[in-house]
Amino acid sequence: MIYFDNSATTKIAPEVLQTYDTVSQKIWGNPSSLHNFGENAWNLLEQSRQQIAKLLGVKPSEIIFTSGGSEGDNWVIKGTAMAKHRFGKHIITTSVEHAAVRNPMEQLRELGFDITYLPVDKEGRIDPADVKAAIRPDTILVSIMAINNEIGTIQPIKEVGEILKDYPNIHYMVDAVQAIDKGVDDLVFSDRVDFATFSGHKFHAPRGTGFVYVKSGRQLAPLVAGGGQERTLRSGTENTPGDVAMARAIRLIKEGEDEAVKREQAIKERIYDHLSQFDHVKLISGRDKGFACHVLCFAIPGVRGETIVHAFEDKGIYISTTSACSSKKHSEAGTLAAMKIPEEIATSAVRISLGDQNTLAEADEFNKVFDTLYAGFQKIID
């Protein structure tokens, strides 16, 4: 089996699973309990928070555990709206955000907020000048993803941050779910970023884990209110085994990040260069530094994306139709629509998404299988 769908989810690492099992069985006390058993769980949780913070170069108090990327995105967006609605109800985001950002924005629109969706160019990238032009006296939040989940575009996070330095009261959020272990921490944790969201299952941690980076001093109302866990910002009994396992997963990926990024870029380029030889293949992702090392989107116009996915599946290779969150809806991808990609291409688009465990040998096998499948698709194309 060749698994090229790592942007959808990753396999939990054996060492991480071992940590999860050990903590579940031996340190299962409630971290909020006053007895020693609870204290042991709390200490372990805080050690994990400190480890994540150290690896990412931030303060432990700035790491707030959540259940994943969707919760994190919803929390920052709605939490900002709740905390700052007296000062304004205008939010700026992009036309290529993940549904976990786009749908909460639309919920706020129904409550009277004004949402500005920035356009993108032919590579799916916003123009920082459009951010500046969209800012109003009542703007309270700018939300921009670091790496696009469908085609891998890296957004100009730092450039937008430079603009927002002149607007210190506006919150700046980065959806960094696709960005961890991809060599772009300098973008995600640049000086002006106030919030960044992460999801554990994207980097070999258990599903149902995640965290939000919350810059010290930033006002954010809790989305989940209750017993006051997580600095009163995110209530609910802590997922101690999951969060501890996630901390180990981050440590493991950070140890091999540089090598993994180089290998993923090499794999992507080998496949990209091979696909570029075919007249009826449309490469949507780029191969330069403006695109992430791990995402490659392409299309065979005239062949539907799900047909391509299942054809590769029959050969033991797993890819997806752009975003896995919307792939079963058989709809044109949001990013490609925003890029004004013709429908014939958009509905044919598929995504390869690489991980640190993929190899060049798998790229060569993919290319061989592609040759065989493409020959069969010629009947449809012609």
Score class of each variant (00 low, 15 high):
Ile381Met: 04
Ser326Thr: 13
Gly290Cys: 06
Ile319Val: 09
Val350Gly: 03
Ile63Lys: 00
Gly302Val: 14
Lys84Ser: 12
Leu336Asp: 01
Met145Leu: 12
Arg270His: 11
Ala133Gly: 06
Gly152Ile: 10
Arg304Leu: 09
Phe370Trp: 06
Glu62Phe: 02
Val76Ala: 02
Arg136Thr: 13
Glu106Phe: 07
Asp5Thr: 11
Val184Cys: 07
Thr322Phe: 00
Lys122Pro: 00
Asn149Ser: 12
Asp114Tyr: 02
Ala205Tyr: 01
Ala8Leu: 12
Val214Pro: 01
Gly161Glu: 00
Lys165Asp: 13
His85Phe: 11
Gly256Ala: 09
His171Ala: 15
Ile12Lys: 00
Phe65Ile: 13
Ser24Ala: 11
Thr93Ser: 15
Ser199Glu: 11
Gly305Val: 11
Val350Ile: 08
Lys368Leu: 12
Lys368Trp: 00
Glu313Pro: 01
Thr153Val: 14
Ala83Cys: 05
Arg125Ala: 10
Gly334Ala: 07
Ile135Pro: 03
Ser216Ile: 14
Ala361Glu: 06
Pro222Val: 10
Val188Gln: 03
Ser320Asp: 05
Asp258Thr: 15
Gly376Ala: 05
Glu162Asn: 12
Ile341Asp: 00
Thr237Cys: 05
Lys26Asn: 13
Lys26Gln: 13
Leu354Ala: 04
Asp21Lys: 13
Arg192Asp: 09
Gln229Trp: 01
Ile154Cys: 04
Thr237Pro: 02
Gln229Thr: 15
Asn43Phe: 12
Ser61Cys: 06
Gly68Ser: 04
Pro60Leu: 09
Phe203Arg: 07
Gln47Ala: 14
Leu373Thr: 14
Glu71Lys: 04
Tyr20Arg: 08
Glu39Trp: 06
Glu365His: 10
Ser33His: 11
Val244Pro: 02
Phe65Cys: 07
Pro119Leu: 10
Gln47Asp: 10
Glu238Gln: 11
Glu97Ile: 15
Glu306Thr: 15
Ala83Pro: 01
Ala324Lys: 09
Ala196Arg: 03
Pro222Phe: 02
Gly152Pro: 05
Thr209Leu: 08
Asp194Val: 14
Gly57Ile: 12
